[in-house]
Amino acid sequence: MTTEQTLDLLLQQMPDHLPGGVLIYRDNKREEILYANSWLLSIFGCSSFDEFLELTGGSFVTLVHPDDREQVERDIRQQIVGSRSKLDFVNYRVIRKDGSVRRVEEFGHRVFIPGVGAVYYVFFLDNDTKYKVYDMDALTGLPGKTRFMRHASMVLALSSRDPKAPKMAFVYVNIHNFNQYNLRNGSERGNQFLIQMADVLRETFPNKLISRFMDDHFVVLTTLPSLKEQIPAISSRIHGLYDSNRLDVKFGIYPVENGSIPVESACGMAQMACDSIREIPDRHVCFYTRNMGEARDLRNYVIDHFREALEKHWIQV
Rank of each mutant, 00 (worst) to 15 (best):
F49Y: 03
I277D: 07
L125F: 01
E51G: 00
D8F: 10
S47Y: 01
I76L: 09
Y181G: 02
I210V: 13
R184L: 11
M272I: 00
F60W: 11
V72H: 12
A138I: 13
K167M: 11
R147H: 14
D215G: 03
Q180P: 07
V302F: 04
V22W: 04
D248T: 13
V155E: 10
A295Q: 10
H305Y: 02
K29S: 14
G58E: 06
I76V: 13
A295C: 05
H305C: 00
Y181D: 05
R296F: 03
L53P: 01
P66Q: 14
R161I: 04
L194K: 07
V101F: 01
D16G: 06
N300M: 03
E264S: 15
L247Q: 10
V122Q: 06
D162E: 10
T140D: 13
V155M: 05
N182T: 03
D98N: 12
Y131R: 07
R30G: 06
T56W: 01
Q271C: 11
T146A: 12
F124D: 04
T289C: 02
D216F: 05
S159P: 02
R212Q: 09
I303R: 00
N300D: 09
T223M: 11
L41Q: 04
L209T: 10
A138P: 11
V171M: 12
F148T: 04
N207R: 03
T62D: 13
D27T: 07
I238L: 14
E229V: 11
E229M: 12
I231Y: 15
S244Y: 06
L241K: 06
M168A: 11
D248C: 14
V133W: 06
R246E: 15
F251Y: 14
R202S: 01
G115S: 07
L53E: 07
V22G: 02
C274W: 11
S42L: 02
A165T: 06
F218N: 04
I234C: 15
R212N: 11
I33C: 09
E229Y: 13
Y301S: 01
F49I: 00
S48F: 00
Q192C: 01
W39P: 06
D248Q: 13
Y121A: 08
F107H: 03
K132P: 00
E70I: 11
K208S: 11
D199Q: 04
N245L: 10
R26W: 02
T2Y: 07
Y288R: 00
G144K: 12
E73F: 13
C274R: 09
M292N: 00
K164E: 01
E70G: 11
M154P: 05
